[in-house]
Structure formats: structure tokens, C-alpha cells
């Protein structure tokens, strides 16, 4: 027997028999099953069986599902809504939704890519593992962290306020796993880029410029609420051209207008400018 199964078979047996799982276990099972074709299919069959028992149709959730959604989902919804910036960003969300309707597929694709970024972001829950395992894994992670060299040069700040801002860059190929781009990185043609930013006071906003052979595009300003070390994703996933190189510049400032002005090349004090180049290369 393997020490750990990567699948959720035991919980599926429980679900088949009971129709419900303890809340945290159920969340973990769903998280795993949604990313695992094998377990996803089994989860669907088991829950359809329970639905058939409960109401003789597969299109009506069981009482257990309804109770679980009501109890488990609320905290997550409230936390998500609270995290989302209000007013200005609501306007941005509305613009995004309008764009979604106006642009149709390309924007849908960007949202899909972004969903993958967020999926990769979420670390797996250890709720199902015993407490001792958690302690040992944390200890092991601590040892690894101590032994790894710090990566301070990547997206290093090249202006004032070094260390107060962090920008991370990710390559999102169409048919491959998302990966972080380090140094002078490569990313295949047709892939998209994704960003995560963190900043400390006084920096609150960032603007990203994307320069390709076809010209310069200014994206943002984006409000940065996350701190360095806990960077949050930016709602920005530009698609790479077929060839050449992309130069990316992120400008952090203490206000949206300052960030935008600095990104346009106007003289603004107290900004942090970080730059990166991505070559279009590698297999798609």
C-alpha cells in the first residue's frame, strides 16, 4: 500500500454510502476531483447515484448537497467579495464584463487562462492529513526554505523603494502547465502571460506596459493590495505574438495617476520601475 494515495477513493466510498462528507473533506474531494479525470468521473457517478436514490433524477441535488452548499459556500463567497476592490474596481469589473460581451471569445480565453493561474495559485489543503504530518511537512518546508538561495535579482526593483514591490511573471501555454518565467525567460508563441504583484506602502498601484514589434500597450492601473510574499494576481493576460521578443515594464507608484503618468514616460517622483524581457521560443 502506498503511504499516500493521490486520489480520493476512500472518500468516494463514504459518499456513496452516506451521501455526505464532513465539510473540509468534501471541499478537498471536490478540489481534487475537479482536476483529476479519474476521480472526477467517479465523483459524478457516485453523486448521480445518490441523486437517483433521493429523487429519481440526476438533475436535482440531494438534500445533503444543498445543505453542504449552504453551509460551506457562504464564508468563501463573503471572503471573495470582501477581497475584491470596490468602487473603482467595480467599474473595472463592469468594463471587463462589457469587454467579455463585446470581444467574445478572446476575452473568454483570457478568463479561462486566468482561471488556470488561480487554480495553480491555490495550495492544496492538508486538512485530510493527520496533524503530525502537517507538522513534519511544515518542518521540511522550513528546512528547504533555509537551504534555498534567495532569488532577489528577478524582477528586481530598479528604482527607489527596492524590496517594497514584487512582480512575478508566468507563462501560460495553451496546452501545457503554467510556469513561472525566471530571468530572461522563454515562452512559446500563442501562449499568454500572467502577472502577480505585491507592494508595501507607499506603493499602491501598478501599471504594466507591454512592448512588442507592433508597438506599446499600457495596461492598468491596477490597485495592489497584496504584500510582497503574498502576491495577488493581476487581471491581465496578454497573448504573445508569434515571433520576436516582448519587453514588459511594471511601474509601481503611490497612486493610480502617478503610476499611469510614469508608465507614459512623464517625470514622476518615488516610483519603482521593473523590467523584464520574454523571448518567443520553445514548443507551444
Amino acid at each position: 500500500m502506498a503511504l499516500f494515495t493521490q486520489h480520493v477513493d476512500r472518500q468516494l466510498v463514504h459518499l456513496a454510502n452516506e451521501g455526505v462528507l464532513p465539510p473540509r473533506q468534501w471541499s478537498r474531494v471536490l478540489r481534487h476531483a475537479r482536476g483529476c479525470a479519474r476521480c472526477g468521473a467517479r465523483y459524478e457517478r457516485v453523486m448521480n447515484l445518490r441523486r437517483m436514490f433521493a429523487s429519481d433524477t440526476v438533475t436535482v441535488p440531494t438534500p445533503g448537497e444543498l445543505a453542504s452548499l449552504e453551509s460551506r459556500g457562504l464564508a468563501s463567497v463573503l471572503a471573495t467579495v470582501e477581497r475584491e476592490p470596490s468602487t473603482e474596481s467595480s467599474g473595472q469589473a463592469a468594463r471587463a464584463d462589457r469587454l467579455h460581451k463585446d470581444l467574445g471569445e478572446p476575452w473568454s480565453l483570457a478568463r479561462r487562462l486566468w482561471a488556470r493561474v488561480l487554480q495553480a495559485w491555490n495550495s492544496p489543503s492538508l486538512g485530510h492529513v493527520g496533524g503530525a504530518w502537517v507538522v513534519s511537512l511544515m518542518a521540511a518546508a522550513g528546512l528547504l526554505w533555509l537551504s534555498l538561495p534567495s532569488d532577489t535579482t528577478e524582477w528586481g526593483a530598479r528604482g527607489e523603494g527596492q524590496g517594497a514591490t514584487v512582480m512575478r511573471l508566468f507563462c501560460v501555454p495553451a496546452e501545457a502547465e503554467l510556469r513561472e518565467v525566471r530571468g530572461q525567460g522563454d515562452c512559446p508563441a500563442g501562449a499568454a502571460l500572467a502577472f502577480a504583484a505585491g507592494a508595501r506602502a507607499p506603493y499602491t498601484h501598478v501599471v504594466v506596459t507591454v512592448r512588442t514589434d507592433k508597438g506599446l500597450k499600457v495596461e492598468g492601473p491596477f490597485e495592489v493590495k497584496a504584500s510582497p510574499g503574498a502576491e495577488a494576481a493581476l487581471d491581465l493576460t496578454p497573448r504573445l505574438p508569434d515571433t520576436g521578443e516582448v519587453e514588459l515594464t511594471a511601474v509601481f507608484a503611490s497612486s493610480a495617476s502617478d503610476a499611469l503618468a510614469a508608465a507614459r514616460g512623464e517625470p514622476v517622483r518615488d516610483v519603482v520601475r521593473v523590467q523584464h524581457r520574454v523571448r518567443i521560443a520553445g514548443k507551444p
Binding site: 502506498a2 499516500f4 494515495t5 477513493d9 466510498v13
Partner: peptide
């Protein structure tokens, strides 16, 4: 064939 035979003992 809906579930796996060794699943009840799958955790350490």
C-alpha cells in the same frame, strides 16, 4: 467497477 477495491485502506 464504480469504485476501487483497495480504496478503504488507501490512507496511511
Amino acid at each position: 467497477g464504480w469504485l476501487t477495491a483497495d480504496s478503504p485502506d488507501a490512507l496511511p
